[in-house]
């Protein structure tokens, strides 16, 4: 792990915690757990990226980890998982790529726009696929635990 990546991990923690504050999370525990989720997600992204060399796979894996983490911490903190999911996934969200893509469109840089646009759509789609996968996973767990209690 390079110096730059260690800095990114700290910044991911601060970024997620900062967004948690901006979206009006209350309570130190909530904010720290949001920050830690952002840290974990980015760590997972970097590890899978190094192992596989595929950014989309890394985004998919990171999103699944963050979703599981958010669902579990939402249970502990007794809040809806939605908010936690949004702030913990923020370091991975392709906001910068979306910005660059639109910027190239406005500067009529056709080739760069296509390249950045493809990346943005594919990366957002792999994250969306991660959200859907974990949602299905949790539905399966919930329905099977309901059957076992009957």
């Amino acid at each position: 792990m390079t110096m730059n990546e260690s800095l990114q991990l700290i910044a991911a923690f601060a970024g997620s915690a900062g967004f948690a504050l901006a979206y009006n999370f209350r309570g130190t525990r909530h904010i720290l757990m949001a920050g830690f989720g952002g840290f974990l997600g980015w760590l997972c992204y970097l590890l899978v990226l190094h192992a596989s060399g595929n950014e989309y796979l890394a985004g998919y894996a990171g999103t699944i980890l963050v979703s599981v983490y958010s669902e579990l911490s939402a249970k502990v903190l007794r809040t809806p998982a939605t908010g936690l999911l949004i702030v913990t996934s923020i370091p991975m969200i392709p906001g910068a790529a979306l910005y660059r893509c639109m910027r190239y469109l406005l500067l009529s840089e056709g080739a760069l726009f296509r390249q950045e646009g493809t990346y943005t759509v594919l990366f957002a789609s792999s994250m969306a696929a991660g959200f859907v996968t974990s949602a299905i996973l949790f539905q399966l767990i919930r329905s099977s635990s309901r059957e076992s209690t009957l």
């Binding site: 970024g15 901006a22 949004i86 996934s89 923020i90 969200i93 392709p94 906001g95 910068a96 979306l98 910005y99 943005t120 759509v121 957002a124 789609s125 994250m127 969306a128 959200f131 859907v132």
Partner: peptide, 17 residues
């Protein structure tokens, strides 16, 4: 830019689709 760009909305819109 990260404060203003709707990255979360964009990603969630694909999830909704």
């Amino acid at each position: 830019v990260m404060v203003f760009i709707p990255g979360v909305k964009f990603t969630n819109s694909i999830r909704d689709l």
